[in-house]
Measured scan of single mutants.
Amino acid sequence: QVATSTVRILGMTCQSCVKSIEDRISNLKGIISMKVSLEQGSATVKYVPSVVCLQQVCHQIGDMGFEASIAE
């Protein structure tokens, strides 16, 4: 089973930030795809909930120095 959710990301300033986040999160087990939008300050994450949760994704992004939260 696959889920798609949006994560809000604060602190991104350039495409390099976007690429860094996409590269790191895409390597997590259970992540199918991730598309980060600098303009919208968010990311669309396609993932397998039984393998990885959005809290883990937000935590990983937080470790990179950005502020991440699950969009309502």
Rank of each mutant, 00 (worst) to 15 (best):
residue 40 Q to T: 12
residue 3 A to W: 15
residue 64 M to V: 03
residue 11 G to L: 06
residue 4 T to C: 15
residue 48 V to I: 13
residue 16 S to T: 14
residue 69 S to A: 08
residue 22 E to I: 08
residue 63 D to W: 09
residue 27 N to S: 13
residue 52 V to M: 06
residue 44 T to I: 14
residue 70 I to G: 04
residue 48 V to C: 12
residue 38 L to S: 02
residue 19 K to N: 10
residue 60 Q to V: 15
residue 8 R to T: 10
residue 54 L to Y: 02
residue 36 V to L: 03
residue 7 V to G: 00
residue 30 G to K: 03
residue 28 L to R: 02
residue 41 G to I: 05
residue 7 V to T: 01
residue 23 D to W: 08
residue 25 I to N: 01
residue 51 V to K: 07
residue 52 V to W: 02
residue 15 Q to S: 10
residue 36 V to G: 01
residue 34 M to C: 10
residue 9 I to N: 02
residue 10 L to C: 08
residue 7 V to C: 10
residue 55 Q to L: 11
residue 41 G to Q: 15
residue 44 T to M: 12
residue 42 S to K: 12
residue 2 V to A: 06
residue 66 F to A: 02
residue 52 V to S: 02
residue 23 D to V: 11
residue 27 N to M: 14
residue 72 E to L: 10
residue 2 V to Q: 07
residue 63 D to L: 15
residue 26 S to D: 03
residue 71 A to C: 12
residue 14 C to K: 00
residue 39 E to F: 09
residue 24 R to K: 14
residue 44 T to N: 07
residue 39 E to M: 08
residue 62 G to M: 14
residue 8 R to N: 11
residue 24 R to Y: 07
residue 64 M to E: 02
residue 15 Q to V: 11
residue 10 L to E: 10
residue 39 E to K: 08
residue 31 I to F: 03
residue 58 C to K: 13
residue 49 P to S: 07
residue 21 I to H: 01
residue 47 Y to R: 00
residue 57 V to N: 03
residue 12 M to I: 06
residue 42 S to Y: 10
residue 52 V to L: 08
residue 40 Q to I: 08
residue 40 Q to W: 12
residue 37 S to R: 08
residue 5 S to M: 09
residue 54 L to Q: 00
residue 55 Q to C: 14
residue 7 V to A: 00
residue 2 V to H: 10
residue 17 C to S: 05
residue 21 I to P: 02
residue 29 K to E: 13
residue 14 C to Q: 02
residue 34 M to I: 15
residue 68 A to W: 07
residue 40 Q to C: 15
residue 26 S to Q: 10
residue 6 T to M: 13
residue 63 D to Q: 15
residue 45 V to P: 01
residue 51 V to E: 15
residue 18 V to D: 01
residue 57 V to M: 03
residue 29 K to I: 13
residue 33 S to G: 05
residue 36 V to F: 02
residue 3 A to T: 13
residue 13 T to C: 07
residue 36 V to D: 01
residue 12 M to Y: 02
residue 9 I to M: 00
residue 47 Y to A: 03
residue 60 Q to E: 15
residue 34 M to T: 05
residue 53 C to G: 10
residue 5 S to F: 05
residue 2 V to E: 15
residue 24 R to T: 09
residue 57 V to C: 04
residue 71 A to H: 07
residue 33 S to L: 07
residue 29 K to V: 11
residue 71 A to I: 14
residue 12 M to R: 01
residue 27 N to H: 13
residue 12 M to G: 04
residue 11 G to E: 04
residue 19 K to W: 09
residue 59 H to Q: 15
residue 66 F to L: 03
residue 33 S to C: 08
residue 14 C to W: 01
residue 19 K to P: 01
residue 60 Q to W: 12
residue 21 I to F: 03
residue 23 D to P: 00
residue 18 V to M: 04
residue 54 L to S: 01
residue 37 S to K: 05
residue 28 L to Y: 04
residue 15 Q to C: 05
residue 51 V to M: 14
residue 57 V to P: 01
residue 67 E to V: 14
residue 58 C to H: 06
residue 19 K to E: 13
residue 3 A to R: 09
residue 42 S to P: 03
residue 69 S to I: 13
residue 7 V to I: 15
residue 3 A to C: 15
residue 63 D to T: 13
residue 50 S to D: 15
residue 46 K to A: 15
residue 11 G to D: 04
residue 39 E to Y: 08
residue 8 R to P: 06
residue 68 A to V: 13
residue 37 S to N: 13
residue 25 I to L: 06
residue 22 E to K: 05
residue 32 I to C: 05
residue 52 V to K: 00
residue 60 Q to A: 15
residue 39 E to W: 08
residue 34 M to L: 09
residue 41 G to L: 08
residue 55 Q to H: 14
residue 7 V to D: 05
residue 62 G to I: 15
residue 24 R to L: 07
residue 54 L to R: 00
residue 33 S to N: 07
residue 36 V to C: 08
residue 68 A to N: 03
residue 51 V to L: 14
residue 57 V to T: 01
residue 3 A to Y: 15
residue 62 G to L: 13
residue 4 T to Q: 08
residue 64 M to R: 01
residue 18 V to T: 06
residue 46 K to W: 15
residue 7 V to E: 04
residue 61 I to V: 04
residue 35 K to P: 01
residue 7 V to F: 10
residue 4 T to V: 13
residue 62 G to S: 15
residue 5 S to W: 05
residue 58 C to R: 10
residue 71 A to T: 11
residue 34 M to P: 00
residue 32 I to M: 06
residue 40 Q to M: 12
residue 33 S to A: 10
residue 45 V to H: 03
residue 22 E to F: 08
residue 39 E to N: 08
residue 47 Y to W: 08
residue 5 S to E: 08
residue 36 V to N: 00
residue 49 P to D: 04
residue 14 C to E: 05
residue 64 M to W: 04
residue 49 P to R: 06
residue 50 S to I: 06
residue 23 D to C: 07
residue 71 A to M: 12
residue 63 D to F: 11
residue 32 I to D: 01
residue 18 V to C: 04
residue 38 L to F: 11
residue 68 A to D: 03
residue 42 S to H: 08
residue 44 T to Y: 14
residue 32 I to N: 00
residue 47 Y to S: 00
residue 9 I to A: 00
residue 15 Q to P: 09
residue 59 H to Y: 12
residue 13 T to E: 09
residue 66 F to M: 03
residue 71 A to Y: 09
residue 62 G to W: 14
residue 66 F to K: 04
residue 39 E to G: 07
residue 45 V to C: 05
residue 65 G to K: 01
residue 12 M to P: 04
residue 26 S to V: 09
residue 8 R to E: 07
residue 45 V to R: 01
residue 59 H to D: 15
residue 6 T to E: 10
residue 59 H to T: 13
residue 21 I to D: 01
residue 24 R to I: 08
residue 12 M to E: 04
residue 6 T to Y: 14
residue 22 E to T: 09
residue 20 S to D: 12
residue 54 L to T: 01
residue 44 T to D: 05
residue 21 I to K: 00
residue 43 A to W: 03
residue 72 E to R: 09
residue 64 M to T: 02
residue 61 I to G: 03
residue 21 I to Q: 00
residue 30 G to T: 05
residue 9 I to Y: 00
residue 46 K to Q: 15
residue 60 Q to M: 14
residue 23 D to T: 11
residue 25 I to F: 09
residue 69 S to H: 13
residue 44 T to A: 09
residue 20 S to Q: 14
residue 11 G to I: 07
residue 5 S to Y: 05
residue 65 G to M: 05
residue 25 I to K: 02
residue 30 G to P: 04
residue 33 S to E: 10
residue 25 I to S: 01
residue 28 L to P: 01
residue 1 Q to P: 15
residue 59 H to V: 14
residue 65 G to C: 05
residue 43 A to R: 02
residue 10 L to R: 14
residue 49 P to H: 06
residue 1 Q to L: 04
residue 64 M to P: 02
residue 67 E to C: 07
residue 8 R to V: 12
residue 49 P to Q: 06
residue 47 Y to H: 01
residue 67 E to T: 11
residue 57 V to H: 03
residue 59 H to L: 14
residue 31 I to K: 00
residue 12 M to T: 04
residue 9 I to H: 01
residue 49 P to F: 08
residue 56 Q to M: 15
residue 15 Q to T: 08
residue 36 V to K: 00
residue 68 A to E: 02
residue 37 S to I: 07
residue 60 Q to H: 10
residue 51 V to I: 13
residue 8 R to C: 13
residue 66 F to V: 03
residue 12 M to L: 07
residue 27 N to L: 14
residue 16 S to D: 14
residue 32 I to E: 02
residue 56 Q to D: 13
residue 4 T to F: 10
residue 28 L to C: 05
residue 60 Q to D: 10
residue 32 I to Q: 01
residue 53 C to V: 08
residue 22 E to N: 04
residue 34 M to G: 00
residue 31 I to G: 00
residue 2 V to F: 10
residue 59 H to W: 12
residue 35 K to W: 07
residue 17 C to N: 06
residue 64 M to Q: 01
residue 35 K to A: 08
residue 12 M to K: 04
residue 15 Q to Y: 11
residue 55 Q to K: 10
residue 56 Q to L: 10
residue 38 L to D: 01
residue 7 V to Y: 00
residue 55 Q to E: 11
residue 65 G to P: 02
residue 54 L to W: 06
residue 31 I to E: 01
residue 51 V to T: 05
residue 43 A to P: 02
residue 13 T to G: 03
residue 4 T to R: 07
residue 11 G to C: 07
residue 66 F to Y: 12
residue 34 M to E: 00
residue 14 C to V: 04
residue 69 S to M: 11
residue 30 G to R: 04
residue 70 I to Y: 15
residue 52 V to Y: 00
residue 19 K to R: 13
residue 25 I to E: 02
residue 60 Q to I: 15
residue 5 S to Q: 08
residue 58 C to F: 09
residue 64 M to D: 02
residue 48 V to M: 15
residue 28 L to W: 05
residue 11 G to P: 03
residue 8 R to K: 10
residue 10 L to H: 11
residue 38 L to Q: 02
residue 41 G to A: 14
residue 10 L to D: 09
residue 66 F to G: 02
residue 35 K to C: 07
